[in-house]
Design a protein around this nucleic acid. Structure first.
Length: 272
DNA sequence: AAAAGGACCTGGTGGC
DNA sequence: TGCCACCAGGTCCTTT
């Protein structure tokens, strides 16, 4: 679930519902996430008012007068804004309860996500300071990737999924962007030329922007419904389509494993 | 410095 | 129906 578009959608939902709200109470039911949820969080957040709500990569940052809440949804996490009395489901680990009995509820079956606190400058936090450029900002250019990739022999797919290079390109969109740019996912990053990187960057931006637009559809029912509708499935070209005919009509989509992740490509559209 | 593999977790699916 | 192997939208950490 938590692709960049859904994180953006989640962030926007939080902005919409919880902007400038004050925390009444924090309930930690399960502190064992990727890193332990700080025990002091209930005391630290009580009576604090949200100042800003931002996304950086796939992190959602909530800024309060006394510090910053740093959250990541991992593979299976979600935030929902709900009435506080909504019954607890399995894996509802954290409630941040605000005035008006609105509750920001963190749910995460696999617990690969995190909720951390810092009272220092958030951009200097260990997890944030190492992040690469935002894909939808002007910092991501073909030239940027080209220069960064010169010493890299890893597969191009791993390279564009490396959050220290560029944030927010997950497994699905890496596959899709490489397909649209006609680049085989196993190509060593240093073998990809400047013109190819220009084309790839254009497709990364386009594919993410389109998905965010579709994520905007999810935003409408953000506070009510489940929000898990697989809304972008129909726009996928290769992801999860092994054995199916490519839209080019010249070949069948293949699946290989790169860096322990499923990778899909069309051998006709994406020659080695 | 870069690359490869393991680690962290639970749930769903498909085979036998 | 039960058991089991395998897979999953992420990314840090350790080892080579």
């Amino acid at each position: 679930m938590p692709e960049l578009p859904e994180v953006e959608t989640t962030k926007n939902g939080i902005v919409h519902n919880l902007k400038s709200k004050t925390v009444k109470q924090v309930i930690i039911r399960q502190p064992k996430l990727r890193w332990p949820v700080p025990e002091h969080l209930p005391d630290t957040l009580a009576q604090q008012t949200i100042q800003t709500i931002q996304r950086r990569g796939k992190y959602i940052l909530l800024t309060f007068p006394n510090g910053h809440l740093i959250s990541h949804l991992g593979m299976s996490g979600s935030f929902r804004v709900l009435p506080t009395q909504t019954p607890i489901k399995k894996h509802d680990h954290i409630d941040i309860i605000f005035q008006d009995d609105l509750c920001l509820r963190y749910h995460d079956p696999r617990r690969f996500g995190c909720l951390l606190w810092t009272d220092q400058a958030v951009e200097q936090h260990k997890l944030i300071s190492v992040l690469g450029v935002e894909p939808l900002e002007q910092d991501l250019t073909g030239e940027y990737l080209y220069k960064k990739s010169r010493p890299k022999r890893v597969a191009i797919k791993n390279f564009i999924m490396d959050s220290h290079i560029v944030v927010g390109v997950g497994n699905i969109y890496a596959n899709e962007a490489l397909f649209l740019a006609n680049i085989h996912p196993s190509t060593p990053a240093q073998k990809v030329g400047l013109a190819q990187y220009e084309k790839l960057v254009a497709h990364i931006k386009q594919v993410l922007a389109t998905a965010i637009q579709q994520g905007g559809t999810t935003l409408r029912d953000f506070t009510n419904a489940d929000g898990q509708a697989g809304y972008f499935q129909q726009t996928l070209h290769v992801y999860g389509k092994a054995g199916e005919q490519c839209s080019c009509g010249r070949a069948t989509i293949e699946k290989i494993v790169i860096g322990q992740r499923a990778s899909y490509f069309c051998p006709a559209c994406q020659p080695i």
